[in-house]
Design a protein around this nucleic acid. Structure first.
Lengths: 200, 200
DNA sequence: AAATTTATAGACAGACTTGTCTGTATGGTT
DNA sequence: AACCATACAGACAAGTCTGTCTATAAATTT
């Protein structure tokens, strides 16, 4: 085992890790295979033996990111007992990220934006990801409200909180400031139906 | 004057028109200068005499788009007397666009996503554009509510309606369906403070 | 009508793109 | 010790990219 910093892990992991950083920060089109290869300290042939194409690497990366992201997201929600705290937990995802240098918003949305073909596997993955997030809002975050609301009203509440969440990410990336996140969080909390006396 | 369809207008206009179509539909990175040149029926030297670089062409396009977009947006708002109809007018922008083939959401957001440098002129233009939209929501759409609300509450209402607007565009682009727009519109209308008896 | 601006076509430079290929070295298993 | 999978380095192909340049033609202005 060498001490070369580039071989802290196996090639495949190094490639995905580098791709994660570069695709996220620079975008898909603006990142070349050669940069990924050189920065991950891997031979070109090794790269192509692990990933048949640039697009399939991106897909593998997004798949991994989706898994990890959703796990974190669910954790931050599950540790709270009340809906308002669970919503605050949702937003803590972004509060943590925006503190890091070079905030780039939602990696899934940014990626989808570079693929204009709606049938592309990347687009499909992003669609599925977002739908899962919306489902989690419905079943995990706001579940307490489902029995006490009209179904249509409940659905609209879920959508509203979900759309505010996404709008806030986009605008925070745009203005590079936390106010959209603060604002969306406050508004989401205010939108929760007030229970009168009874604990929800 | 020839009858060649490529010279229906002057070269500069043809270039911007073609760039508008291609940048919007395919994205900035995925669109090459050569495609713009050939599809606008213009010589390469002519192109570079009008626009010193690809990025400055994109900037010129976005500038023109911003002007026209805002004009339409204001028109759709100004023709209504009540806040709820003005909000519906806001969303009519997207109802019209999504009917066209190959809906691609917000051209400004998509463009900004491809430029990771926050200091880039493109990013600055998009920031300014979005801030102008938010200002219009505050001064033109919701102005009736300003005097009857606490300043902070009014600000939050403006932000909420603005963030829902953007979230809906993004998600409509993602799922290629109108439900996010419908949902955001309904929620926005419900968020308006109810006046009891007095006309607003 | 002459002069000047503007457009044309397209070759060209030089860098960059993804992906293939050859050959060598290394590490682990039998 | 022999073997095999894996990783390495890097040349190479074939094409793309932006941007420059030359030389000719058309349109506009003086």
């Amino acid at each position: 085992m060498t001490l070369d910093p580039s071989s802290l892990s196996k090639p495949r992991e190094r490639i995905i890790e580098t791709a994660s950083r570069l695709f996220f920060r620079q975008g898909y089109c603006s990142t070349g295979i050669n940069q990924i290869i050189s920065e991950s300290g891997v031979a070109k042939a090794s790269f192509y033996s692990h990933f048949p194409s640039k697009e399939l690497l991106a897909l593998a990366w997004l798949g991994q990111r989706e898994e990890r992201w959703l796990m974190q997201f669910k954790e931050r929600i599950a540790q709270h007992e009340s809906a308002d705290k669970r919503i605050t937990g949702m937003y803590s995802m972004w509060y943590d990220q925006i503190r890091e240098e070079g905030y780039r918003g939602c990696g899934f949305i940014n990626m989808a934006g570079e693929f204009s073909d709606e049938e592309s596997p990347i687009r499909a993955l992003v669609r599925d990801h977002k739908e899962r997030v919306r489902q989690i809002v419905a079943t995990d975050v706001l579940s307490d409200y489902r029995p006490v609301m009209k179904p249509d009203d409940f659905g609209e509440l879920v959508n509203a909180i979900y759309l505010l969440f996404d709008g806030a990410i986009i605008q925070t990336q745009n203005v590079m400031h936390v106010w959209p996140i603060d604002s969306a969080l406050n508004t989401s909390l205010k939108m929760l139906p007030q229970s009168r006396g009874e604990a929800i």
